[in-house]
């Protein structure tokens, strides 16, 4: 099958916040997902689909449907058993998966279900893994996430929370790891997102079409060049793509060594408590995102500056909704940041 050329990540004009959020999620998958809301034609899905080209390769057990890590013996499938018994089998290096969840996907394909083919032809009861299995250790992308059917949303919430997919249906009882980064995009004018789902996303952003003519012209120029000759365009951007790929890899390696001074932790806690975010998820995300940003920039320790830069995207969707306060959530976060910085 012909492989479609994907528009390069680095060729996306502007939208620096969106690109940064995606890079942060690629460096530290535990930040818990990215939600991109915004106007039509702002390159939301382009950016996510481009991410797949940048992700580093990781070792997996060959033949394992759940992309199990050979270093951990946490998978219970036949392929993994065979691998761990054998001395000759080598792990396979594959890029982290980015799995697209189409809007019309049925429940059986999301969680996995009875393998119909084997049931029909051989009368065997076997489990056929679904999209959640394929997305394990990688990214699960949902375009138009605000239009997703409710019962699929419930399912995702449960799995995203536990990191484990438990299938109890059609006489099957299967449990497998499903740790993935949820990436969603949508247009807010088409409907709201349920607050429970909103909270599952670590980072959230609002993207807009650039206003200035020059950027708009540049967007069209690059897109036009891409459509005219995709292969040549991708070659032209290959060097920059390579640089970003390397940056992600370096940052992933450096991440465990990045230190988090106590006063920065206090700063995070104060931000969250002053903004009245619910639960501890806000603090955790803020901390992890700041650390990933520091790693991306080659800094050994997290500073207030790192925290301030990721605070709006980490916290804006966690503020208690006050319908009578008109000010934008991002503005509220930024206002407080300024206030705290003046005190300091």
């Amino acid at each position: 099958m012909t492989k479609q050329k994907v528009f390069p990540f680095t060729a996306i004009v502007g939208q620096d916040d969106m690109k940064q959020a995606i890079l942060i999620a690629a460096v530290d998958q535990s930040v818990g997902g990215v939600l991109v809301f915004g106007d039509r034609g702002t390159g939301k899905s382009t950016a996510v689909r481009a991410l797949a080209q940048l992700l580093p390769k990781v070792p997996v057990v060959p033949g394992c449907a759940y992309n199990a890590d050979p270093a951990k013996k946490d998978c219970d499938c036949d392929a993994c058993h065979r691998f761990h018994r054998s001395d000759t089998l080598k792990p396979r290096n594959v890029p982290l998966p980015v799995v697209d969840l189409p809007l019309g996907a049925t429940e059986d394909r999301v969680v996995g279900a009875l393998d119909l083919e084997r049931a029909l032809a051989h009368g065997e009861k076997a489990f056929e893994p679904g999209l959640l299995a394929r997305a394990n250790r990688g990214f699960l992308y949902i375009d138009e996430v605000n239009l997703l059917e409710d019962h699929i949303v419930d399912l995702l919430l449960d799995v995203a929370q536990s990191g484990e997919n438990l299938v109890e249906r059609e006489g099957l009882s299967v449990r497998h790891a499903a740790r993935f980064v949820l990436v969603g995009s949508g247009n807010p004018e088409e409907g709201e997102l349920r607050p429970q789902l909103l909270d599952r996303f670590g980072l959230s952003l609002d993207v807009k079409t650039p206003d200035d003519i020059d950027s708009r012209v540049e967007i069209i120029r690059r897109r036009d060049a891409f459509e005219q000759d995709a292969a040549a365009f991708c070659r032209k951007w290959a060097r920059r793509e390579g640089a970003v790929r390397k940056k992600i890899l370096t940052a992933r390696d450096a991440l465990p060594g990045v230190t988090m001074p106590d006063d920065i932790l206090r700063f995070c806690a104060e931000l969250c408590s002053r903004l009245g975010t619910d639960g501890l998820r806000g603090e955790l995300t803020l901390m992890r995102a700041a650390r990933a940003l520091a790693a991306l920039e080659g800094d050994g320790r997290v500073t207030r500056d790192h925290v301030s830069r990721v605070a709006p995207m980490s916290l804006r969707h966690r503020l208690r909704r006050n319908p009578l306060d008109d000010s934008d959530a991002t503005v509220r976060v930024e206002r407080l940041l300024q206030e705290l910085c003046e005190v300091a």
């Binding site: 479609q4 899905s45 689909r49 697209d100 969840l101 189409p102 019309g104 996907a105 049925t106 059986d108 394909r109 999301v110 279900a113 009875l114 393998d115 119909l116 083919e117 056929e128 679904g130 999209l131």
Partner: peptide, 12 residues
């Protein structure tokens, strides 16, 4: 957007 039709349903 993608040039492909991706099908994930009914076991397919």
């Amino acid at each position: 957007d993608t040039g492909f039709i991706v099908l994930e349903r009914d076991g397919l």
